[in-house]
C-alpha cells in the first residue's frame, strides 16, 4: 500500500502526483523505489478522478462485513 499512501499524501496536500514527487516521498520514507511500479501508479492514477473515488468511499453505505471469519 505504500504507493497508495504516498499518492494520497500528495493528493491531500494538493500536490501533483508525478513520478518525481512520488519517488521523493517514498524515498524520504526509506523505501527502495521500484521505478516500474511508480510509473504504473502514476499512469493508472491519471485515469482516475481521485476526489470522486474518495467521495464515493466516504458515502459508502454500511459495507460488506466480510462473509466469514
Amino acid at each position: 500500500m505504500e504507493y497508495i499512501y504516498a499518492s494520497l499524501l500528495l493528493h491531500s496536500a494538493k500536490k501533483d502526483i508525478t513520478e518525481d514527487s512520488l519517488k521523493n516521498v517514498l524515498t524520504a520514507a526509506g523505501i527502495n523505489v521500484d521505478e516500474v511500479r511508480v510509473k504504473a501508479v502514476v499512469a493508472a492514477l491519471k485515469e482516475v478522478n481521485i476526489d470522486e473515488v474518495l467521495k464515493n468511499a466516504a458515502a459508502m453505505p454500511v459495507a460488506a462485513a466480510p462473509a466469514a471469519q
Binding site: 500500500m1 504507493y3 497508495i4 499518492s7 494520497l8 504504473a40 501508479v41 493508472a44 492514477l45 485515469e47 482516475v48 481521485i50 473515488v53 474518495l54 464515493n56 468511499a57 459508502m60
Partner: peptide
C-alpha cells in the same frame, strides 16, 4: 478504495 478503482 483508490487502489480498487485504479486497479492497483
Amino acid at each position: 478504495n483508490l487502489a480498487g478503482e485504479m486497479g492497483y
